[in-house]
């Protein structure tokens, strides 16, 4: 089919216009604020790249960027590893497959803030259901201060995130798995002993398209997490769960350093775009090898 440039323009323009006007334009004029000392109210003074220079010596921003990377990597890994395992399990259980897939998707229907409120209640070290349950099951030694221990807090939030979106990864891998030639699956199921080896050699590479989708979406979704740490820890204790989005927010509204906040947001944005591009093109290349 021949596509004239004018035809392309006709197709793309409506979306591009709405998107450009209401997202791109305000984002860019927002980012111009990163060159000012704007407080979010009144006019800011132009201060060049001072905000960016300041970031270099701001230990909270360094911690936040590092935590964001750790958080994103952990969520992406666990959500997809567990999702893959669950998908293969469900794939071999035709009786339960459809209903349980829905069960695991249920938490992702809720708003993240709501999920945060529910878990902040569950995590409470003062009679919170998680610790009480562990106690009741005779696992009292596993009781933790889930959100107050700097060594655990970030992982607790990762856990909540994975809980919330595990169903997404499961559904994606399950679809990929069910799309495999059925002889392959049957033989894999029968061969108990060699099953794992077989899985890694034969089926796992064939799940490449599913992996690309699942990993890319998780990466993008988890890198901008804001609501969970906002409700659960506000970045604490200390800066143990300070994520990039959260430090942006705190600088913008609590600290009244709007210009500085947008500078941090921009740096994060660039980082996420680069990383997700690298990862997804690597995964795409892997798909070509099938």
């Amino acid at each position: 089919m021949t596509w004239k440039p004018s035809t392309i323009a006709f197709f793309v323009l409506p979306a591009l216009a709405v998107y450009g006007l209401f997202v791109i334009y305000p984002t860019f004029s927002g980012l111009l604020l990163s060159l000012t000392d704007s407080k979010g109210v009144g006019q800011g003074q132009f201060i060049g790249l001072a905000n960016y220079a300041r970031m270099l010596e701001d230990s909270q921003v360094r911690t936040a960027l590092l935590n964001t990377v750790i958080y994103t990597v952990l969520v992406t890994f666990f959500q997809n590893a567990l999702g893959l395992g669950l998908a293969v399990w469900l794939g071999n259980m035709p009786e339960l497959r459809n209903s349980l897939r829905v069960v695991f998707l249920l938490p992702s229907m809720l708003s993240m803030l709501v999920v945060g409120f529910i878990w902040s209640y569950l995590f409470s070290p003062l009679g919170g259901p998680i610790n009480e349950m562990l106690q009741a099951l005779g696992l009292g030694s596993l009781k933790r201060v889930w959100l107050g221990d700097p060594g655990i807090a970030l992982f607790s939030i990762v856990g909540v995130h994975v809980w919330m979106y595990l169903g997404h990864s499961t559904a994606i891998f399950l679809a990929g798995y069910l799309g495999l030639p059925s002889e392959l699956r049957d033989s894999a199921a029968i061969d108990g002993a060699t099953g794992w080896v077989r899985f890694w050699r034969v089926e796992w590479p064939l799940l490449a398209p599913a992996t690309t989708v699942a990993v890319t979406l998780t990466l993008l979704g988890s890198s901008k997490t804001f609501e969970l740490p906002f409700v659960l820890t506000r970045g604490g204790p200390g800066d143990a769960t300070m994520l990039s989005s959260l430090t942006v927010f705190q600088n913008a509204f609590a600290g009244e350093r709007f210009g500085y906040a947008t500078a941090i947001a921009l740096v994060t944005l660039v980082g996420v775009v680069i990383i997700s591009n690298v990862v997804s093109s690597a995964l795409r290349r892997r798909e070509q090898l099938i």
């Binding site: 998107y19 791109i24 927002g30 944005l269």
Partner: peptide
């Protein structure tokens, strides 16, 4: 790419100008 970038733009950076 411009559209894809929208997947990661933090909304409140744009809020005041918007």
């Amino acid at each position: 790419q411009i559209f894809a970038a929208g997947l990661v733009i933090p909304f409140f950076a744009a809020m005041v100008p918007l």
